Simulated assay, not measured.
Amino acid sequence: MLKAYKYRMYPTKQQEEMFSKHFGCVRVIYNWALEQKIKSYEQDGKAISRFTLNKTIPTLYKDMEWLKEVNSQSLRGATLNLDNAFTRFFREKTGFPKFKSKKNPVQSFSVPQYYKVDFETNKVKLPKIGWIKTKLHRHFDGNLKTATVSKTSSGKYFISILVDDGKELPDKQDFDENSAVGIDVGIKDFAIMSNGEKIDNPRHLNNSVKRLKVLQKRLSRKQRGSKNRDKAKQQIAKLHEKIANQRNDFQHKLTSRLISENQAIALETLTVSGMLKNHKLAQSISDVSWSSFVTKLEYKAEWYGKSILRIGQFEPSTKICNVCGYHNNNITLVERQWQCPDCGASHDRDVNAAINIKKFALNKQNLIGI
């Protein structure tokens, strides 16, 4: 089973310079490889493989000798990242790969092999760079795979180490109506369970939006190219990083609890990209980050042998009475409570939706009535 472990790095000034060289050289190779792929397709109508590109990289050393200063395998890792970008483009339609800019504050490079991790001294050794002070706060056992060094927009350095612990993913555990839960995500409440529990939306971005506006206003007044403008950018980047850390911490704690308490979790498929086109709700939807929440649920379910059940985005989970099945076409977004005219049952709009999500998902699994 593959797991990634992320650690904060504290390089010296000299090591930071080597990091910058690696970031720059990897970016150059990525852009060069993308250009070669585009030219090959336009001229010959064929795609050029990354293996062919890797064989061509040594010929670039004549005109760009500074490429020799960095780890050659990191350069070849750039062509692999480009291949993965094209794979996502063709399979997931996520957008055609773009050329990378050195103005982007977020930079990274990969180290496929020949690096070492020493937990006793809290250091990581990278080819061409040496031993780097690293906060190795979590221990792991297994075979080291690819490591990725990254720099955030706030100027911090991290290393993500992919480890194969040799374990197999556990088999999916059996579940029934009692061990499954339906979840309806929202904006007022972050998550509503079919058992009636509601998880408050922490609104991390909304809580910091006033401070963010102040910092952005200060940035707009700074002269372009000045050091004070760079400092203002750093302050904004640090605030965005704090918000992202708060959001991830909240979601990790919640998803871990949900996975440990239930054998199966039923969710509604949402097209977040389409929902973001609603300018009145776009900021609130971005703040809750449903996609990130679902991603965490999915990979943790794989780790522990739990099941994630899905229902279609057009299933009328909100409009159907979970008691008698009456379809209420007249319900609006403003109505948070409604009463079924057929059976008289009173419904909380979101709890009713969560119950129906669970019922629809179990019905597809032929588990209703167990």
Rank of each mutant, 00 (worst) to 15 (best):
Q15R: 04
E16Y: 00
E16Q: 12
E17A: 13
E17C: 02
S20R: 12
S20F: 08
S20C: 07
K21F: 00
H22Q: 03
H22E: 03
H22M: 02
F23S: 00
G24V: 05
G24N: 04
C25K: 00
V26S: 12
V28F: 15
V28Q: 09
I29S: 03
Y30I: 00
N31C: 01
L34C: 06
E35T: 04
E35D: 11
Q36G: 02
I38C: 05
S40K: 14
E42M: 09
E42F: 05
E42A: 10
D44M: 13
G45H: 12
I48Q: 09
T52D: 14
T52A: 13
L53V: 10
N54F: 04
N54D: 15
T59F: 13
L60D: 06
Y61I: 07
K62E: 09
K62L: 01
D63H: 11
M64C: 12
W66E: 03
K68C: 03
E69A: 04
V70A: 02
N71C: 01
S72P: 03
Q73D: 08
Q73R: 08
Q73I: 00
L75C: 10
L75Y: 07
R76M: 12
G77Q: 12
G77V: 07
N81L: 08
L82T: 05
D83Q: 15
N84C: 10
A85Y: 07
F86W: 15
F86A: 13
R88M: 13
F89G: 11
T94A: 14
F96M: 13
F96N: 06
F96Q: 08
K98M: 11
S101Q: 05
S101G: 02
K102I: 08
K103R: 15
K103N: 13
N104M: 04
V106L: 02
Q107P: 00
S110Y: 04
S110G: 08
V111L: 02
V117Y: 11
V117L: 08
D118E: 11
D118P: 04
F119V: 06
F119R: 05
E120L: 05
E120H: 05
T121M: 12
N122P: 03
V124W: 06
L126V: 09
P127L: 08
I129F: 11
G130M: 09
G130W: 06
W131C: 13
W131S: 15
I132H: 12
K133T: 12
T134F: 01
H137S: 15
R138N: 08
D141M: 11
